[in-house]
Design a protein around this nucleic acid. Structure first.
Lengths: 137, 137
DNA sequence: CTGGCTGCAAATCTTTTGCATCCTG
DNA sequence: CAGGATGCAAAAGATTTGCAGCCAG
């Protein structure tokens, strides 16, 4: 893919499949998720390669790491500013493209020089709301 | 301590020392931090006990877990609503007691039933700003 | 060609668990 | 004195690393 040329890294088949999987992916996958998906069609793929590639992409600002789930790391190909909601039931993460006014923080951020911010919401996703309701008696 | 009676759990010396360490603690310690601090004066303390106690306290809503640092889990004895800023240099986490207007999210939260939210800021703390500046030539 | 990339296995780190023993309530 | 708590060691997961061989540029 021509548009990856600018990445300045070698475009191996492994990397191309990782990039292809991430493209327009809204699932906020973990390294394991990516590995499992790719290993189906690419049996020699190694989990270590996935980690190394994710590290490289992150370092070059091509993906972001999401620290909202303490269990494992999730990655997000959407690098523009946005926020997330995580379901406390199934742990699904969804994007929130919305702008919040965080300017109140300008007045006192404990001397920090702020470079970014992120809002996370916790709650029950539509699917889990149904299940939870159904289980109530 | 009388005020712990209501916790409804056995007050062993180990637990009391963990509770004492957490009381008014603004450092957002990890289990390891707590263990290291307590082990000095309480050599038989086990890291597993720290984890188990933190789990218990969290389940009872006495502490919160902070998922802002992918490296390890941090715990916060401050259970009231507040936010955090993490230093991208030294990874220090500080509290932000401030209210933000997140009501814009009411209009579209992808069908989620929201139970909580949290704002995180990233940047350089005062200490790291100095160091970074000093290193620039 | 050559340096970056891959894949395997081993290592590391954090967190959890099993279980015999202990001790608070 | 009973059931929850402790502490050890072992297990479980997630992520990283070392290194020999491979291949994209």
């Amino acid at each position: 893919m021509q548009r990856y040329k600018e990445f300045g890294l070698k475009l191996t088949p492994q990397r191309l499949s990782i990039l292809a999987f991430l493209e327009n992916n809204k699932s906020h996958p973990t390294a394991e998720d990516i590995y499992r998906h790719i290993a189906k069609k690419f049996p020699t793929m190694s989990l270590a390669t996935v980690y190394k590639t994710l590290e490289t992409l992150k370092a070059r600002g091509r993906i972001k790491e999401i620290t909202i789930d303490a269990e494992k790391r999730h990655f997000d190909p959407e690098t523009g500013r946005h926020h997330h909601a995580i379901c406390t039931g199934c742990k699904k993460i969804v994007d929130i493209f919305m702008d919040f006014d965080l300017s109140a923080a300008d007045t006192d951020l404990r001397g920090f020089e702020i470079t970014g911010s992120h809002v996370e919401f916790y709650g029950l996703c539509p699917d889990c709301r149904k299940t939870t309701t159904a289980n109530k008696r």
